[in-house]
Computed example of a mutant assay.
Amino acid sequence: MKTLVIYTHPNHQSLSYAFLQAVLRGCEENPNIVDVQVLDLYQAQFNPVLVFNENKRRRDMHADPDLAAYREQLLWADQIVLVYPIWWGRPPAMLMGYIDQMFASGFAYRDNGSLIPEGLLKGKSVVCISSMKGPTFYPFFWLNNAHKILMRKALFNYVGIKRTKFFEFGNMESTRGKHQQKLEKVYRHFRNTAH
Score class of each variant (00 low, 15 high):
Leu4Asp: 00
Val5Asn: 01
Ile6Arg: 05
Ile6Phe: 09
Ile6Trp: 06
Tyr7Met: 05
Tyr7Ile: 04
Tyr7Leu: 08
Thr8Val: 15
Thr8Lys: 06
Thr8Glu: 06
Pro10Gln: 07
Pro10Cys: 09
Pro10Lys: 10
Pro10Ile: 07
Pro10Val: 07
Asn11Met: 05
Asn11Asp: 15
Asn11Ala: 09
Gln13Ile: 09
Gln13Trp: 06
Gln13Asn: 15
Leu15Pro: 04
Leu15Asp: 06
Leu15Ser: 11
Ser16Phe: 05
Tyr17Glu: 09
Tyr17Gly: 06
Ala18Trp: 04
Phe19Lys: 05
Leu20Phe: 09
Ala22Ile: 11
Val23Lys: 05
Val23Pro: 06
Val23Asp: 01
Leu24Val: 09
Leu24His: 10
Glu29Thr: 10
Glu29Asp: 08
Glu29Lys: 14
Asn30Tyr: 07
Asn30Ser: 10
Asn30His: 10
Asn30Thr: 08
Asn30Cys: 08
Pro31Cys: 11
Pro31Asp: 11
Asn32Val: 00
Asn32Phe: 10
Asn32Ser: 13
Asn32Gly: 07
Ile33Tyr: 02
Val34Glu: 11
Val34Cys: 10
Val34Ile: 14
Asp35Leu: 03
Val36Arg: 00
Gln37Pro: 01
Gln37Phe: 01
Gln37Lys: 14
Gln37Val: 03
Val38Ser: 08
Leu39Gly: 00
Leu39Asp: 00
Asp40Gln: 11
Tyr42Lys: 07
Tyr42Cys: 04
Gln43Asn: 12
Ala44Gly: 05
Ala44Gln: 10
Gln45Arg: 15
Gln45Val: 06
Phe46Gly: 07
Asn47Arg: 09
Pro48Gly: 08
Pro48Phe: 10
Val49Phe: 12
Val49Ser: 09
Leu50Tyr: 05
Val51Asp: 06
Val51Glu: 11
Phe52Ala: 10
Asn53Ala: 06
Asn53Gly: 04
Glu54Pro: 02
Glu54Ala: 13
Asn55Tyr: 11
Asn55Thr: 13
Arg57Asn: 11
Arg57Tyr: 08
Arg57Ser: 13
Arg59Phe: 12
Arg59Pro: 01
Asp60Leu: 14
Met61Ser: 03
His62Ile: 01
His62Lys: 11
Ala63Gln: 15
Ala63Leu: 14
Asp64Val: 07
Pro65Met: 03
Asp66Tyr: 02
Asp66Arg: 05
Leu67Ile: 02
Leu67Trp: 02
Leu67Tyr: 05
Ala68Ser: 09
Ala68Cys: 02
Ala69Lys: 10
Tyr70Ala: 02
Arg71Met: 01
Arg71Glu: 00
Arg71Ala: 01
Gln73Ala: 07
Gln73Tyr: 01
Gln73Asp: 02
Leu74Thr: 00
Leu74Cys: 00
Leu74Tyr: 01
Leu74Ile: 04
Ala77Ile: 01
Asp78Trp: 00
Gln79Val: 11
Gln79Cys: 14
Val81Gly: 08
Val81His: 07
Val81Leu: 12
Leu82Asn: 01
Leu82Tyr: 15
Val83Cys: 13
Pro85Glu: 08
Pro85Met: 11
Ile86Tyr: 05
Ile86Met: 14
Trp87Tyr: 15
Gly89Asn: 12
Gly89Tyr: 13
Gly89Pro: 13
Arg90Lys: 12
Leu95Phe: 15
Met96Thr: 15
Met96Leu: 15
Gly97Ile: 13
Tyr98Gly: 04
Ile99Trp: 14
Gln101Lys: 15
Gln101Leu: 15
Met102Arg: 03
Met102Asn: 03
Gly106Glu: 08
Gly106Tyr: 10
Gly106Val: 13
Gly106Gln: 12
Phe107Pro: 00
Phe107Asp: 00
Ala108Met: 05
